[in-house]
């Protein structure tokens, strides 16, 4: 199997500019392989969220090529994109919970979108809420939850449908170190089940907690891989690396 075939995500010289301003991402080329655990680091404003937006198909690049799950997503007809989005789980930096839905209904959303029957929903959704420690807040609206609780609902929603790839933008930014570790363990468990994980963070403590992770680094819109993450076969990150 060639590297190209086994890749789950492939960016080829991607550039992104918002409006007519300068490019916020330039010449981004990388390949993600299935079943790996990636961290995306970089200073605030380096373009992490922008890169992830391209990844979870919320934004079209201004130039370059993108393949996901072996398909060119740039030339793909628009009506095939929802099917691709369902194969991904996303934790948005700003959570993006639906205000007028309960925690339960927010977490159930991806399953409902995929057409899971109502009677098959309650079990997995409640289990997931228990796992993130919010079983007792299932009926709460997002507005009545703390920032960290909202983040955990967002994470529960992202992983409930066992996505092939999980994209998480600062998923531990609002929780205490203990909860952060617990959430990272959840991602690892998912990763062991075969999900490719991409986590944007500037928390190096967190990165160290996942010794087998691979690191990508954004610096003012250009990508580097100090640990050789983007080579094939990917090189393991030495534990304790400071990127």
């Amino acid at each position: 199997m060639s590297a190209k075939e086994s890749a789950i995500v492939q960016f080829d010289n991607v550039g992104l500019r918002y409006g007519t301003e300068r490019e916020v991402l330039s010449n981004i080329s990388f390949t993600l392989f299935p079943g790996r655990f990636y961290f995306l680091t970089g200073a605030s404003g380096a373009g992490k969220t922008s890169l992830l937006k391209l990844l979870y198909l919320a934004q079209r690049p201004s130039r370059g090529g993108m393949r996901m799950f072996g398909t060119d997503v740039i030339t793909m007809p628009r009506d095939e994109l929802p099917g691709f989005r369902r194969r991904m789980g996303v934790v948005f930096q700003d959570f993006r919970l639906v205000d007028h839905l309960s925690a339960f209904d927010n977490v159930a959303l991806p399953l409902r979108v995929s057409g899971v029957r109502e009677r098959d929903l309650a079990g997995p959704v409640n289990d997931m809420l228990d796992w993130v420690g919010l079983g007792h807040r299932a009926d709460a609206r997002p507005a009545t939850l703390s920032g960290g609780e909202q983040q955990r609902v967002a994470i529960a929603r992202a992983v409930i449908a066992r996505p092939e790839i999980l994209v998480a933008d600062e998923p531990t930014g609002n929780v205490d170190p203990e909860m952060a570790l617990k959430l990272i363990r959840l991602f690892e468990a998912l990763n062991r089940l075969g999900t490719t994980v991409v986590v944007a963070t500037h928390d190096y403590q967190l990165i160290r907690k996942v010794p087998e992770s691979l690191i990508m680094r954004l610096d003012k819109g250009t990508l580097s891989d100090p640990t050789g993450a983007l080579r094939y076969p990917p090189k393991r990150a030495p534990s304790g690396v400071e990127a």
Binding site: D79, R85, V90, V98
Partner: peptide
């Protein structure tokens, strides 16, 4: 608008 965008990003189709 927010709800629509979220459902859209979670893979909801236009028809849904």
């Amino acid at each position: 608008r927010d709800t629509i965008e979220i459902v859209h990003l979670l893979g909801g189709s236009d028809a849904q």
